[in-house]
Design a binder for these strands. Sequence first.
DNA 1: GTCTATAGCTGGATAGAC
DNA 2: GTCTATCCAGCTATAGAC
Lengths: 206, 206
Amino acid sequence: MVMAPEATDWREARRESARHAIVQTAWALSRELGLAGWSIRDLARRSGITTPTVYAYFESKNAIYDTMFGQAATEFADRQAESYDDADPRGRLLASTHRFFEFCSNDPPRYQLLFQRTLPGFEPSAPSYEPAVRALAKAGEMLAACGVTDARHLDLWTGLIRGLVDQQLSNDPGGDRWERLLGECVDMFLAHCALSVTDPPRQPEG
Amino acid sequence: MVMAPEATDWREARRESARHAIVQTAWALSRELGLAGWSIRDLARRSGITTPTVYAYFESKNAIYDTMFGQAATEFADRQAESYDDADPRGRLLASTHRFFEFCSNDPPRYQLLFQRTLPGFEPSAPSYEPAVRALAKAGEMLAACGVTDARHLDLWTGLIRGLVDQQLSNDPGGDRWERLLGECVDMFLAHCALSVTDPPRQPEG
DNA sequence: GTCTATAGCTGGATAGAC
DNA sequence: GTCTATCCAGCTATAGAC
């Protein structure tokens, strides 16, 4: 007997829903114990199933991490793509930066997975990685709208923001000690870029 | 029979030397396999001894990490304390920043151990930690000599430099893509600080 | 798909002879 | 202090009954 297509869809939907539940548990454990702080056994126990059942849905622990990575990358891209109220480019850049900062500091394990690459032996697959690339391109457009296109300046920008996020997460988790410097940082950076359009570049240093 | 004091010293010296050799091997393994990528067995094999012998010199794996931490912190403090050729404060700040950057990027596992705190379950002991505090105070003096004393600006500074180091290590290991931005970064930062002494502070943002 | 049971391995750390 | 031998806990992953 041939299966009606809807039956296949139901099965697929159920399977997807079960996979989703497992991954949600993995996120919860990562927030409690750290990204590398839980085992498949822990994950199974917390999900109310047994270890082999986990392997019925994911072929390995890294496959779970990869699904988490893809989910996080999609969330990141969606968040950055949402519309902005501000009319001027500087306001849009600041808003986008705040969004990025909050995205990172609201969920440290997610930040660690997406940007810190500290899981031994894990590399995200190409499809999981793609949305993250899309979102980073968006940041480039924001800067271009502010007149910043120099490759050196783009690197300077990514370094600046990354440092503020890292300091926030490691020295004042849950606080806003570095987050509240974002506006000042944007102004400092844009002023600098505006100047170096008119000024000649400096001497290279020894 | 009573032991002559020199005999005790010889023994102590031999013991210290053996401890040192083990720790040097641990550094080598950390550079090859990552800070958390080696086991006590690996360490013993590479040192030409057996596992229990390692425990004759260190009471646990974390005790080895703690010794490594203390060594790294001392190197850091010594390097920062070396004299500076430059006469002007800005030159000295730039030189000190370059030193810091090189100190970090020359030895990624050392940077990870000292500043990233990513080893699960490891906290440095107070004596191991002390030299690092001393070296960080030195950075504060450098900034003060440039007229930067505002707490916000100190936080901004640590974020800036940390971000450049992190980007260098994770996106261009062994290169200088972010290192060569250091001079520009110092100028941008000092110009900004000089301005905000004269300008009124900005509105807080919503 | 879900279970019980376990293989197969690696880890940190130790007992006890020498 | 150094070894051989081993304990015991933890891990990822799988075999096979149902």
